[in-house]
């Protein structure tokens, strides 16, 4: 039996915590910064100093604060010990922090007049590391730069940590900031969707020890579309997880799509054409949350009992899916 999800939490434009996301109020905010777009789904209810206090947050950037905040929302409902791990996905860490660090180096009187306190935040592992420091989580602590594949990637990696006994339970999820730098990078990549910021995490445990599972992870499959056919590769992943679970395509009741841009969106639709499931797209509620898309798909599915699928496609050619049995 695969691992189980026993708890979840999220921070997004809907607000902080489970109830806020379930209420699902759509609230894109107008932007008045140097962003290329005019609006974004900002997690405005998450105010770092209110949520985390002033101690230790002085130089903390928003990506890391979101991670600390969402893990803090999750932990009261779970059993933590010395082998509790954290596995978070990301696209590139905080592009904004990286840009600001480089800007200081390029524009100040000396190239080394940079703020050394911001350097660790510029690294991609900052969010997971900060979450561990803040909440004293001493188990395996891993950051996977999976981009839009982060959902399947963190669950599979977390499941492996459980299967090998390296962790007793794993916080799996992802964080994506909203920042002008991220928005410009997405703009130059051809992105046209309204961006969102958010963080979503689930707690993954071995089936045998978990008290009250919300869902079983029945299968995770990923492929790299080296032949330029992401639809075919994703269909193969779906086939594999269903076959291994002894399920048929028509058994899937709900699909949460990742809804990428352009040709990949078409590939996702094509791969899912055989399914007769109801389709949900979390981005309609929270915007395009990049690496956090997958974890948000998973937590969105947790309200729909039965077999459920979350798909993932990244512009780098990787595709994948997660098959869940959501318990009622």
């Amino acid at each position: 039996m695969g691992p189980v999800i026993t708890a979840w939490s999220a921070i997004s434009s809907c607000g902080v915590g489970r109830a806020a996301l379930e209420a699902g109020l759509v609230r894109p905010s107008p932007l008045d910064d140097e962003s290329p777009g005019t609006q974004a789904f900002l997690a405005s209810d998450f105010v770092v100093r209110e949520a985390l206090g002033t101690k230790g947050t002085g130089s903390m950037d928003r990506s890391s604060a979101l991670a600390v905040g969402v893990v803090g929302e999750l932990l009261p409902g779970v059993d933590v010990d010395a082998r509790t791990g954290v596995v978070l996905g990301t696209t590139s860490g905080s592009s904004q922090t990286q840009l600001e660090f480089t800007r200081d180096s390029l524009t100040r009187r000396k190239p080394y007049f940079v703020n050394p306190a911001s350097m660790p935040f510029a690294l991609m592992n900052s969010a997971a590391g900060q979450a561990a420091i803040w909440h004293k989580l001493t188990g395996p602590n891993t950051t996977i730069a999976g981009g839009r594949m982060s959902g399947p990637s963190v669950l599979r990696y977390g499941a492996r940590l459980l299967a090998t006994g390296r962790a007793s339970g794993v916080v799996c999820g992802a964080v994506e900031e909203y920042s002008p730098t991220r928005a410009w990078l997405e703009h130059h990549r051809g992105g046209t969707r309204v961006l969102g910021e958010g963080a979503a995490v689930v707690f993954l445990e071995s089936a045998g020890t978990a008290r009250a599972p919300l869902a079983e992870v029945l299968g995770i499959a990923t492929r790299v579309a080296v032949d330029g056919d992401p639809a075919g590769a994703l269909a193969a992943c779906l086939h594999r997880v269903l076959e291994r679970a002894g399920a048929a395509a028509e058994d899937v009741r709900t699909v949460a799509v990742s809804a990428p841009e352009g040709a990949l969106a078409e590939a996702e639709r094509t791969a899912l054409a055989r399914l007769r499931a109801s389709v949900v797209d979390p981005a309609e509620v929270i915007g395009d949350v990049g690496a956090a898309t997958g974890p948000f798909q998973v937590v969105t599915l947790l309200r729909s009992p039965g077999l459920a699928v979350a798909t993932a496609l990244d512009a780098d050619g990787s595709v994948g899916c997660v098959l869940l049995r959501v318990l009622s």
């Binding site: 860490g93 997971a128 891993t142 950051t143 599979r156 990696y157 990923t222 790299v224 080296v226």
Partner: peptide, 15 residues
Amino acid sequence: RELRLSDVDVSTIAT
């Protein structure tokens, strides 16, 4: 992509 490996679990680990 370079080695044309499609049936692989790929991850870039950023620790």
